[in-house]
Each structure stands twice: as C-alpha cells, then as structure tokens.
Amino acid sequence: MTDLIVRNDLSVVTTGSQDFVTVLLDGQLLGIPVLAVHDVLNAQVLTKIPLAPSWVSGVLNLRGKIVTAIDLRNRLGLPPRRDDKKSMSVVVEYNGEPYSLQIDKVGEVLSLDDQLFERNPITLDARWRDVSKGIYRLDGQLLAVLDVDKLLAFQNGEAAA
C-alpha cells in the first residue's frame, strides 16, 4: 500500500502508514516504532549504579534478564521530574542488549500516515536532532520519532571518547 507521491514542495514521500508507541516526556509526545518495543513496564525497582553516567538510572530485573535503565529526560536534556509519580519504562533492544527507557507515561499506539511525516526542522536542539528521525504532524500536537539505535549508540561514543 505504499505509493510515491510528489508534494507541493517537490519532496517525494511514500504513502503508507507506520505504527508507533507514543510516550509522554515532559509534555512532549514521542513515538517509538512499535516493532522496536519489547515491553512496556510499570514502575520497577531499580538498582542504582554508583559512578555510572548520569543518564543511566540503574539496572532492573526483567523476568531474569538484567536490563539497563536509561533516564530519557536526562538523556534529552530535560529537567528531572518534579511530581512524585513513578516513571514507566519502555524496553527496547540495542546490539542484543535490553535497555529500559524511563519515560513519564505511555500513550496509545498510533498508526500514522506517511504523508504526515516531516524531516526535523534544522533549528531543532542538537541533542534532539541526533536522536529524532523526524516529526509527524498530528492534530493539535507534534510527535517526534525516536531513533532508538542512535539514542543508545551515542552513549557508547561518549563513553569511549
């Protein structure tokens, strides 16, 4: 069901739709490709790791597997949560290792038309630009698509440097 169409600005887009798990982080709606998501968890007991980078909030036990928890707010340069509510998490995999992204809240799963897709505005915060694949124009709000690979690869690069 994908067709190529030429839009007014001469950019070529495919038509079709993608499914995303939407999550809420500091009021911003983010989308994670649904196939990348392994689990969605409620608040979990985290074991803190002293000396770890600040964006690693700890490790948790997911059915016998040890999962590293990433503080997504910290990672994206957002302020820490002020309300007392517990963070939820979305488990994704990178290089065969499971990671849990700590987010405020999980929303619904949306199937979004490709025609709604835009590339990142060039003025977007550099930290976001690196990890966002692009933006979907939704009714009343925008949804940034998280590039999970880049999100987690960045940390390796930083650690090695």
Binding site: I49, N156, A159
Partner: peptide, 16 residues
C-alpha cells in the same frame, strides 16, 4: 554489565 557500563572498573559484573 551492559556495554555502556564497561568503563566502570569497580564492577566486574552484575547478577540477580
């Protein structure tokens, strides 16, 4: 430990 924590010399691993 997860690859991103490998640089921490004080840990040799983790367990449940």
């Amino acid at each position: 430990v997860a690859p991103i924590l490998k640089d921490l010399n004080v840990y040799s691993g983790n367990t449940i």
